[in-house]
């Protein structure tokens, strides 16, 4: 399987930003500072379980709930 890391990071940004470009950029910055740079992954990046685990932890810290196939913001 591939692409889950990129999809999940993009979903975190989208859900947290709720349409605000400013918050989208600050959320991306926060993810990079957590060691997860969305630009380093593509839809063909392998689903590395260790990285996916970090992404899920970041989602939880940022208050974004992840579900299979969907993401919702719990803030």
């Amino acid at each position: 399987m591939a692409g889950d890391i990129k999809r999940t990071l993009d979903s975190i940004i989208e859900q947290r930003a709720r349409g605000s470009a400013t918050i989208a950029l600050s959320t991306k910055t926060k993810l990079i500072l957590k060691g997860l740079n969305p630009d380093r992954f593509t839809l063909t990046s392998p689903d590395d379980p260790a990285i996916l685990s970090k992404v899920r932890a970041a989602a939880a810290e940022l208050g974004v709930a992840l579900h299979a196939g969907s993401v919702s913001n719990v803030h």
Partner: peptide, 11 residues
Amino acid sequence: MEKLGDATDLV
């Protein structure tokens, strides 16, 4: 700073 950034979008 990480905790603040997690908890809020306030700059």
